[in-house]
């Protein structure tokens, strides 16, 4: 993983429906988690659900984050449905 790459991971229902476990995006200055979400949703089709009715939770480097949280090269960004363990 190069320094200007952000790793994006998906879990559970999102992983299955997007048929994607992991992908990389380029880290641009001032990029937020919400920007990455919007960019992926703009691919259309099943990706549109990332900005659909169902909430998407966000983690950056394995810590809960918000859409406005900034991301940079080397970060691990994760998108997943609300959690249901226990």
């Amino acid at each position: 993983m190069s320094d200007n790459t952000i790793t994006v991971r998906f879990f559970a229902r999102l992983r299955e429906e997007l048929e994607t476990e992991e992908l990389n995006v380029e880290a641009l200055p001032g990029l937020t988690a919400g920007d990455v979400l919007a960019e992926l949703a703009s691919r259309g089709g099943r990706w549109a659900q990332l900005q659909g009715d169902q909430p998407v939770m966000i983690a950056i480097n394995q810590t809960m984050a918000k859409a406005g949280s900034s991301v940079q090269g080397g970060d691990e960004l994760a998108f997943f449905p609300p959690v249901t363990g226990g």
Partner: peptide, 14 residues
């Protein structure tokens, strides 16, 4: 711990 785990720990049930 149990209540908070259910809404904040990243587990998903199918």
């Amino acid at each position: 711990i149990m209540d908070a785990l259910k809404t904040s720990a990243p587990f998903w049930k199918k």
